[in-house]
């Protein structure tokens, strides 16, 4: 079964998450209308994989810049303005821009992939007000734990506790 607690304050919902974690009941997830600093703190999330993908994108960008500039210069080794065929200072500009470009594109695409977006299904326990002015704490648990979960949510300051079929 799914129990949804609705809060009007982030700290209260973070308190509920911490209490539920301490009691080791069910599987906890949450919804937030604002960047959830307190809720993330108590959730002890693993570090986002987005970081590694952005780094990879940036490195690919630099390598692409080097490949384009050096590769095309060597394709026809034409001396222009008495400058060396491989002129590092101007090539760094291209590498830098491509590093930012591919790093930025990687940030957005890896966010979408990791966050499983675009999402066409509604997540269990979601209510439209969680996108506006309420915080939701969702607990998937078995029937015997129901009373304990409900009391933890209420004691933590939930305005409303609802039951949803799993």
């Amino acid at each position: 079964m799914i129990i949804v607690g609705s809060f009007d304050d982030q700290e209260l919902s973070a308190r509920a998450i911490a209490a539920l974690k301490k009691a080791r009941i069910g599987e906890i997830s949450w919804f937030s209308p604002i960047p959830p600093e307190h809720m993330e703190e108590v959730s002890h999330e693993k570090k986002s994989r987005v970081r590694a993908l952005v780094l990879t994108g940036g490195i690919i960008g630099v390598l692409s810049g080097l490949a384009i500039t050096i590769g095309t210069s060597y394709e026809w080794s034409l001396v222009a303005g008495g400058k060396p065929i491989i002129s590092w200072p101007p090539f760094i500009v291209i590498c830098f821009e491509l590093m930012i470009l591919l790093g930025g594109i990687s940030a957005v695409t890896s966010f979408l992939i990791n966050a499983r977006m675009p999402a066409f299904d509604t997540a269990a326990g979601y209510q439209p007000r969680f996108g506006s002015d309420h915080f939701g704490v969702v607990v998937r648990c078995e029937e015997p734990d129901r009373t304990r979960v409900e009391s933890i949510l209420r004691e933590s300051g939930a305005q409303e506790v609802l039951l949803e079929a799993a």
């Binding site: 997830s29 949450w30 919804f31 937030s32 209308p33 960047p35 959830p36 809720m39 993330e40 959730s43 999330e45 570090k47 986002s48 994989r49 987005v50 970081r51 952005v54 790093g103 940030a107 957005v108 890896s110 966010f111 979408l112 990791n114 966050a115 499983r116 977006m117 675009p118 999402a119 066409f120 299904d121 509604t122 997540a123 979601y126 969680f130 996108g131």
Partner: peptide, 19 residues
Amino acid sequence: MGWQGTQRQWHHFSMAYLL
């Protein structure tokens, strides 16, 4: 794009936006 403010979405959003 189907944003619902879930734990997973915020977790990766915050990092991607910062980067």
